[in-house]
Design a protein around this nucleic acid. Structure first.
Lengths: 123, 123
DNA sequence: ATGATTGTATTAGATACTTAATACAGCGCT
DNA sequence: AGCGCTGTATTAAGTATCTAATACAATCAT
């Protein structure tokens, strides 16, 4: 199921998750996406909202539309890889900034991560 | 100046920043906060919006109100420290989750951070 | 050719957020 | 007593988001 936070527009959250499915390979280059109506049903959301998310995503070029046939992932695998690194880099920078505001420098953060990955490895 | 992203309610962003000022020591335990009207002017925002952010923050206990006198930071420094670690932990968990979705494991992330902190240290 | 499916467009209504303009009660200072 | 500050409340208006209910044109499979 799809769960949405209430403190951010749904269409933005949809963009994030669809983008994720593209960069992590759930949708492969050249794949046909589920239709607007299918995705709407899967996410329990209005088709208009899916439409808005997808048409926004299209501006970056990882999707393209065949007007009466459906939407497809780009065949350009390099573009997808690039997008993936770019998104990860954005996450990293944003995270480092926030942590620095809290007073954590990179070395402190690495310590935190090491500690954290030990703890979760104990499962 | 205060800048706000358009993709998230302003009062939530205000909560984040005010909380930050508390945990990073800009506002000290026991300090009197600027008045609703002052903060509104500083952030170029309606007083109602500040009021909403502050009254939400109050529920966590780091603030308290003297009805006709003003708002004050809690004197409980331990509570503030605890809040700080808690907020940092939340950021970390959220970040690790997102990165994992992209296919990055903790060791990969540590590499990224090291690389990143070398680059920015070159400034 | 027909019917189902595709993306897209439009209209209307509900809700949340934000601003603006006021107003009020209580406290402190002069 | 009066003035200015405090948080708080109310009302109205504008905007963005989301849903619902349709509708249409083009494509594809049968």
């Amino acid at each position: 199921m799809w769960e949405f936070s209430t403190d951010r527009p749904i269409y933005l959250q949809l963009m994030d998750r669809l983008q994720l499915r593209i960069v992590n390979g759930t949708y492969q280059p050249g794949d046909k996406l589920p239709s607007v109506r299918e995705l709407a049903q899967e996410a329990s959301v209005n088709p208009n909202t899916i439409q808005k998310a997808l048409s926004e995503l299209e501006r970056s070029g990882i999707l393209y539309t065949q007007r009466t046939n459906g939407r497809f992932i780009t065949e350009d695998a390099a573009m997808i890889d690039k997008l993936k690194s770019q998104l990860a880099e954005e996450q990293l920078v944003e995270f480092l900034k926030k942590m620095k505001d809290f007073g954590y420098e990179p070395k402190d953060i690495i310590t935190l991560i090491e500690k954290h990955s030990q703890e979760t490895a104990a499962d």
